[in-house]
């Protein structure tokens, strides 16, 4: 790697010992060029990751008692922690519920605004707006929608004779409400990627297919969707990461309640580490989150790489 970066004018086939020495110097220059990025990466990504792992093997320092090595005790405690399992389960439901819905919605919207329709510039803007808004703002808007009795949803419900419902305050609906907000926010963002990918597909392919007698659905299934696979993979990875990473709306709307019904893993980590100040247990939970994300991303790339046609 260092050699390939080296600004050497010698071609490999004509490289003489003198050239080798020059390449050695160039190698040093290459490493020096890499240094700033490497330092930043190590200091803010690799060191924290390793440190978190180490913290998870120690007890939480409290007042006069410094941290001491406890081995896997924290992990043991975690396995017996019902709230951990609840948050993990919630997160799984949340991911499975939001990701396919957001991606499907994004694709449908992209296909629609990619067509020849009037005012499609405005339409694209409208779909993209949720993405531009900060999640905190989005959550506050939806907080009003969900407000019992005089929120938008209940007001519309009244028109049809439905009674008041405490959407965010009920165990059965709270998580679903958060999922709707997420789909609403994510779909517009993913749509932009799909739209960009759709515009990369040559219109002549559609013309050729039309002459060959392919219907719309057949063309989508055989051509458009396969050609969008790289985008789908990219969007999918992003969606999974976001499903575990973005909890702003939980903070604003439910704070994990009622009765841990909307407790997502990251929000639980935040509570444990910064509200209960149990930093060692927070580190332990963080390791689980890291492991899940790494496994999912790796699995996606390994699985899809063979099935995706990259241009």
């Amino acid at each position: 790697m260092a050699e390939s970066l080296a600004p050497s004018v010698d071609r490999p086939s004509t490289r003489r010992p003198a050239g080798r020495a020059a390449a050695g110097q160039g190698g040093l220059a290459g490493w020096l060029l890499l240094l700033p990025a490497a330092v930043l990466l190590a200091a803010f990504t690799h060191y924290p990751a390793v440190a978190t792992f180490l913290h998870s093997l120690y007890s939480t320092p409290r007042g006069s008692r410094p941290a001491h090595f406890v081995g896997l005790d924290n992990y043991q405690a975690m396995i017996q922690d019902p709230v951990f399992w609840q948050s993990l389960w919630n997160n799984a439901v949340y991911a499975l519920g939001t990701i396919p819905a957001a991606i499907a919605l994004a694709l449908v919207m992209a296909l629609w605004v990619n067509g020849r329709i009037r005012g499609r510039g405005l339409l694209r803007l409208a779909y993209f707006t949720p993405t531009v808004l900060p999640m905190i703002a989005v959550a506050n808007i939806w907080l009003f929608f969900y407000t019992p009795d005089y929120g938008l949803i209940d007001q519309v419900g009244h028109l049809f004779g439905a009674g008041a419902h405490n959407w965010l305050g009920s165990r059965s609906t709270a998580l679903a409400c958060l999922m709707v907000v997420t789909v609403w926010k994510e779909a517009g963002f993913f749509m932009i990627f799909y739209l960009a990918a759709l515009q990369q597909i040559a219109p002549v392919l559609g013309e050729a297919a039309a002459i060959e007698g392919a219907g719309r659905w057949y063309f989508f299934r055989r051509v458009t969707f396969p050609l969008l696979m790289p985008t789908t993979l990219f969007v999918l990875v992003n969606a999974v990461i976001n499903a575990f990473r973005v909890v702003d709306h939980v903070v604003v709307m439910t704070r994990g309640g009622p009765d841990n019904a909307t407790e997502l893993l990251l929000f639980y980590i935040y509570e444990v580490a910064f509200k209960f100040w149990d930093t060692a247990y927070g580190a332990t939970l963080t390791m689980v989150l890291l492991a899940i994300l790494a496994a999912v991303a790796l699995g996606q790339f390994l699985y899809f790489d063979k099935r995706v046609h990259y241009r």
């Binding site: 040559a202 050729a208 392919a214 057949y218 051509v223 046609h309 241009r311």
Partner: peptide, 26 residues
């Protein structure tokens, strides 16, 4: 049938699939 200047082949399909695209559709 039509042959396009840019050939309009489907990049992710094999030669056989490209040739048979219309017959499968029909």
């Amino acid at each position: 049938a039509m042959v396009f200047q840019s050939y309009a082949l489907f990049p992710h399909l094999s030669v056989a699939e490209n040739i048979l695209f219309g017959l499968t559709a029909r």
